[in-house]
Design a protein around this nucleic acid. Structure first.
Lengths: 242, 242
DNA sequence: TAGATTGTTAATCGATTAACAATC
DNA sequence: TAGATTGTTAATCGATTAACAATC
């Protein structure tokens, strides 16, 4: 599972030691920890960009606004990545987090729904940065089908089955209208796709060999509104009749 | 704070009673509960659409795949919205959740960054459904400034200050490049905007009279990848060399 | 009244923080 | 060796679930 990049990183710092013990825990890590991993990924990436090679949990805790204790606990779910008296080697830790998160697994994805949101996503460098390769888009709108968006061809939904038989597809990004979501998701799963990145607002209840990650933008907006209401209450609602 | 819609809803069912006790708790409700409120909002909306007028916590728990206990606990953070032996009046409960979440507060927002994502958001009915009125977009790109997207004019960032002085702006949606995010956010706050809906990936640390809601799409994608890795491990990685 | 279902308290479970021995 | 900082256990805190008395 080590790749060239990883070997390169390994050779850069040699203050850490210890190697791999075999960690049994990996299987049942708490959801709270998992949700935090991508944040470590981002901050470590930033540290590397800034040329930092070594960091302690205390220093990282200040940058990330969390406790040092939490950082050590989180990382130790997956292995002993640090060294007493020294801290963590940034490149090594980053490589480990990448492994854990499956960056470099070469996952392939398709986008179902080539409307505004699907188009916005494909034009975002996000997929590339995280090692997910989007290989096709699908839609039913005849004015969209056949187009090439950001270098990716848009096929008709009727071609989905054929496409999935000829290509490995791990992830379907669902950016189609809510009403069509259930059917599209079921079809994707039937064709062997195991991961759904769901922007439709519809909720799915597949069994747990299907991974579904929901992005509810509306929910996020409402949480913001709730907070705003309460800030206004605290600071004395600057209402219109002042 | 009651509006016409609310009165209409109130008159439809009269099986509930009780009215308002004054709930002291409203101020410090746990984050876990708050994060769940928008989901109740969505499901209640759906129930109303289906003509359902009355529901018990048990029935709702089945639909939403959570425990009845949790539903009752959550709702009771804000008031006694149900009635023993009867359940909850759907319209009444929906109206209450709307009040709590600030739907109908008439929040006004602007979008800073009229690129693909900003454009995708403005074309989405989400804002309208949740009572947030987007009144302008801003950008620096001369090929975009001056355009009208989905009925909303795109101004130059230089006009932001003037605009905010002449209009009430509660929320800034940040869909501009990460490198420009910090400065734009600070400017928005300086101009009196209290709510930031942040898509930039940059993290802000304002004090708590500023509400920031982060949407980290990349984090969500990586969580999905993590889950996929573990499904593959469980079900026996269907690798290339099979 | 009897049946149903809430509101609320108590019990359990999980997640975070603190503390410190191990060790580099 | 002395100093620093991890890995890990124990203590605290918060969130969820279970149970049941109140009551419609």
């Amino acid at each position: 599972m080590d790749n060239l990049d990883f070997n390169k990183i390994m050779s850069e710092g040699n203050e850490y030691a210890d190697g791999e013990r075999n960690w049994p825990g990996r299987s049942d890590v708490s959801p709270a920890v998992i949700k935090r991993l991508p944040r470590y990924f981002r901050y470590l990436r930033e540290l590397i960009r800034n040329g930092k090679t070594r960091i302690s949990s205390g220093e990282l805790s200040e940058i990330m606004h969390v406790t040092a204790s939490q950082i050590r606990q989180d990382l130790n779910c997956f292995g002993g990545f640090g060294q007493q008296g020294y801290g963590y080697n940034v490149n090594y830790l980053y490589a480990k987090i990448c492994d854990i998160l499956g960056v470099g697994m070469g996952f392939c994805g398709i986008i179902i729904g080539a409307g505004n949101l699907g188009t916005a996503l494909i034009k975002n460098p996000m997929f590339e940065k995280r090692g997910v390769d989007i290989i096709a888009m699908f839609d039913v709108d005849p004015t969209i089908v056949g187009k090439v968006i950001a270098g990716i061809e848009v096929f008709h939904m009727n071609d989905l089955e054929r496409f999935c038989k000829n290509n490995r597809v791990d992830i379907a990004v669902l950016t189609l209208p809510k009403e069509l979501a259930q059917e599209a998701a079921e079809q994707a799963v039937r064709l062997g796709i195991r991961g759904l990145w769901n922007f439709t607002g519809k909720e799915f209840y597949f069994d747990k060999d299907i991974a579904v990650e929901n992005v509810h933008l509306g929910d996020s907006l409402m949480t913001l509104c709730y907070e705003l209401c309460h800030i206004n209450q605290r600071t004395g609602e600057q209402s219109d009749e002042d």
